[in-house]
Nucleic acid binder design. Structure first.
Length: 336
DNA sequence: AAAGTACACAACCGCCAGGTG
DNA sequence: ACACCTGGCGGTTGTGTACTT
């Protein structure tokens, strides 16, 4: 039997919950005069009806004089994202790079802001790589309609980084379809079995035949070798919260940021000396696109996944617009 | 104006590693 | 070798506030 944790060991009236200004004053007074010494002994010596652990947390996370309060700056934000990419949830390690910020504060900021932000940008907040999962699919019709590849390639449409990340994710999916014997997969996805099993509606993506032709040629252009293959961080490290702050104000074919192939995808965050090794690139793509025989398994797997998912409604929400089937139909036409 | 909901953040919990007797 | 203490860490919960219906 393990020993009960210090704070619950003696429940004889020790106060929990929010600290009062008076308690704060007592704690700060005591530590300024005597130092904290043994945290366990401190509350009794200082005259606080708290456990030592509670006092330590209050001091380190809130009362310490060197704590910087207020909003995180853009620079701090980028630092956290970069460090998280290399260190993971090592909040205390991350905090050492941000003077005046506590691990708790950084952790909260990550959980409430940054994780959500990355997610919405089509970046997996755990792996820091473009999401190739299906969660981006609900936005694809809008994305396709709004971006309308034809226009995207032929005109100057300002795109922000979030759109670019989504486009890259879409491109990743397209590539999975395009680099394998696609017809089997597409037939499966577009076929009546898949549709009926998942109650898909027919939803036109609204491409005219000539647009499809143009789209096909534009997609093929995307496959062409790029002169410049920047680190993806060149986009992600830019300020993103301001949708008017377009990183690529003029997207001519010459300056369209390259959409990387699955096998070429670099780490989202450039490797610093202490960062994760290149070998982790094997994790980039959960789908083994180098193995043609994996195709049908992959797409049948999607169906399985949807059936197996704990939250049925979760997948239904994602699939409701019939996006996969419509994408498959679209891509069938493109690759026919 | 009241009720419900979402969000941000402070605080707590449980576990672990290192130190000590 | 063992039991215990202590501080630290990451995950989770609770609470206050802002916003929406």
């Amino acid at each position: 039997m393990g020993r009960p944790p210090p704070c619950s060991r003696d429940e004889n009236g020790l106060k929990k919950g929010p600290w009062t200004p008076e308690e704060d004053r007592i704690l700060v007074d005591y530590i300024q005069r005597h130092g904290h010494g043994s945290w366990r002994a401190l509350p009794k010596l200082a005259g606080l009806n708290r456990c030592g652990k509670s006092c330590r947390l209050r001091w380190t996370n809130y009362l310490r004089p060197d704590i910087k309060r207020g909003r995180f700056s853009e620079e701090e934000e980028h630092t956290i994202i970069n460090l998280h990419a290399s260190l993971g949830n090592k909040w205390s390690a991350i905090a050492t790079h941000l003077p005046g910020r506590t691990d708790n504060e950084i952790k909260n900021f990550w959980n409430t802001h940054l994780r959500k932000k990355l997610f919405q940008m089509g970046i997996d907040p755990v792996t820091h790589r473009p999401r190739t999962d299906l969660n981006i699919l609900p936005n694809l019709p809008q994305l396709l309609a709004a971006a309308n590849f034809t226009n995207l390639m032929m005109t100057n449409i300002p795109l922000d980084a979030a759109h670019l990340a989504k486009l890259q994710s879409l491109h990743n999916i397209i590539q999975v379809l395009g680099t394998t014997p696609t017809m089997e997969a597409l037939n499966f996805l577009a076929g009546p079995t898949f549709r009926e099993n998942h109650q898909f509606s027919n939803l036109s993506l609204g491409f005219a035949p000539q647009e499809l032709t143009q789209l096909q040629s534009n997609l093929l252009n995307l496959e062409a070798p790029q002169q410049h293959q920047p680190e993806v961080t060149e986009y992600h490290n830019q300020p993103m919260e301001d949708s008017n702050n377009h990183q690529f104000s003029s997207l001519s074919p010459a300056n369209i940021p390259p959409l990387l192939t699955q096998s070429q995808l670099p780490a989202l965050v450039p490797a610093s000396p202490e960062r994760r090794p290149q070998t982790e690139n094997k994790n980039i793509n959960p789908i083994n696109i180098s193995n043609p025989s994996s195709t049908s398994t992959t797409f049948e797997g999607w169906g399985d996944l949807m059936d197996d998912e704990e939250s049925d409604s979760y997948w239904r929400d994602i699939i409701r617009p019939g996006i996969i089937s419509d994408m498959a139909l679209l891509l069938k036409e493109l690759w026919d």
